[in-house]
Design a protein around this nucleic acid. Structure first.
Length: 467
DNA sequence: TGAAATGTTGGGGCG
DNA sequence: ACGCCCCAACATTTC
């Protein structure tokens, strides 16, 4: 088949949360098809229900798209950037290019699934082969079911079911080269720069630049280094925020610079290679963290509005404190007078991530000691995390708040001072982010820990009794 | 992937 | 030698 100008009908690859060329099932399918490949990214800030990325996420997205574009050019293709409502923009592209096929890797959010379904239907009606692939999860949510055919609501049996399901596929290579499709002049494209994703006035991204190199190349270096050098100590040291013992792969998975399949098999291969029991245990613990990611997506699939609605609806009547903006701001800015909390919030603001143990502590502090609705915390994380994930972020906030799937029991209130003594015993982490700790410049706590704990338990008591 | 309150135990000081 | 008390240290229960 040919278009009017004699060129073959292209296969369109729509990139979304999969900004990589290796182990990308949609890209591979397009390359295999023999058709010229047209790679596209759509910046859609118009469709209903799509959640606009936060500021830190936009920064990361800019750089990751830029590298993806360069990688595709090396292979012989280009990344076409479009702007507008996905359904209209993709539909127009298919018509203008007389595309033969449309490929993508699936998304799992409510609005995303509605949009993708509508596009798939109209593409097929127009004679375009539209095919979706599993590229971002180890286990598709609808394949992991309880004996009754329902979704799992508890992590442990969920993960056990995953582990006894067929093993996730081995990751595939990047295409060696691509036959890049030509774009008709009539198509209105923009550049990554045109999207205006970077902060300008002021440019607050200096800390992010120091902490990160977005993009697929650095992602692979990071994965290799972690698996080869750091996996052995992972189990014992991952809870110590002052030690660099975590994988720091979360933004890589969020943006799909790495697929979970690449991470899974890298860790498994390391475990098989040398049979050190320390590595074996660490690998199991680490893979369990991938399991929580799978469970969060599983939960998002079942509860599309997880970012705004309590999974346990009895929490809808929870007696949150009246919101004092100064209190929320003190938490956001790391000025609560609680050293571990302030250290975490400042790490977040500077680097776009926070150590996982500390995330639990600051979240517990906001929700329980300050009695501030978890949605405020979720939104702040959404805006400031470079790994802000549509599934993980709301899932984990609801987990801490007690309203979520397999949530922490309501009475589990972290004591941030005790947590500091346990997990940052030498104060390395706190001093790194709160240098004025233990000086007169450091403020008094904005709440009494003992008293606010009692108040939290009383508040949660009202929810419990209404069950 | 808690913390605090409460209960139990056992060693040592002491009359 | 014995009972009593104190109090860590650990275990269990409760929130």
């Amino acid at each position: 088949m040919s278009t009017d100008d004699g060129s073959a009908r292209p296969a369109v690859v729509w990139f979304r949360d999969d900004l990589r060329i290796a182990d990308n099932p949609a890209l591979s399918a397009a390359a295999r098809s023999g058709a010229p490949v047209l790679c596209v990214y759509v910046w859609d800030d118009e469709s209903d229900g799509l959640r606009p990325p936060g500021a830190a996420s936009r920064w990361w997205l800019h750089h990751s798209l830029t590298e993806l574009s360069a990688s595709l050019e090396r292979l012989g293709a280009v990344l076409t950037v479009l702007r507008g409502p996905s359904e209209r923009v993709i539909g127009e592209l298919l018509r203008e290019t007389d595309a033969a096929a449309l490929f993508w890797n699936r998304r799992y959010g409510g609005a995303e699934r509605r949009i993708d379904e509508a596009i798939k239907t109209s593409a097929r009606e127009a004679g375009v082969e539209a095919t979706s692939f599993g590229g971002s999860l180890l286990f598709e949510p609808w394949t992991i079911r309880t004996g009754l055919g329902t979704a799992f609501s508890v992590y442990t049996p969920f993960w056990r079911a995953c582990l006894s399901a067929p093993e996730p596929r081995k990751p595939g290579p990047a295409p060696r080269s691509l036959d890049g499709a030509r774009l008709p002049r009539s198509t209105h494209t923009v550049t990554v720069d045109d999207l205006g994703l970077l902060p300008t006035h002021p440019d607050w991204a200096g800390g992010l630049r120091d902490a990160w190199t977005p993009g697929e190349t650095a992602a692979h270096e990071q994965l290799t280094r972690f698996v080869e050098d750091d996996l052995a100590a992972y189990r014992n040291e991952r809870d110590l925020p002052g030690v660099d013992a975590t994988s720091r792969l979360s933004p890589r998975l969020r943006w799909g610079e790495l697929s979970p399949h690449q991470v899974w098999h890298a860790a498994r291969a390391r475990r098989e290679r040398d049979r050190d029991p320390e590595i074996a245990q660490s690998a199991t613990t680490f893979l369990g963290e991938l399991g929580w990611r799978e469970f969060a997506y599983h939960t998002l699939f079942e509860h599309p509005d997880v970012a705004t609605v309590n999974i346990h609806r009895e929490y809808d009547s929870f007696p949150w404190a009246r919101l004092h903006p100064t209190v929320l701001r003190a938490w956001q800015q790391g000025r609560t007078g609680i050293p571990l909390v302030d250290a975490g919030m400042r790490e977040l603001w500077t680097t776009g991530v926070m150590h996982n143990r500390v995330r639990m502590v600051v979240a517990s502090f906001l929700v329980k000691n300050l009695l501030i609705d978890w949605r405020h915390g979720e939104q702040w994380f959404w805006d400031t995390l470079v790994d802000a994930d549509p599934a993980n972020n709301p899932f984990n906030w609801q987990w801490v708040a007690g309203s979520g799937a397999d949530a922490a029991p309501y009475f589990r209130v972290f004591n941030p001072e005790l947590q500091r003594e346990k997990f940052d015993p030498h104060g390395d982490y706190v001093r790194r982010w709160v240098p004025e700790w233990d000086t007169d410049a450091y403020p008094e706590p904005i709440v009494d820990l003992k008293e606010s704990r009692r108040a939290a338990l009383a508040a949660y008591e009202t929810v419990k009794s209404s069950r």
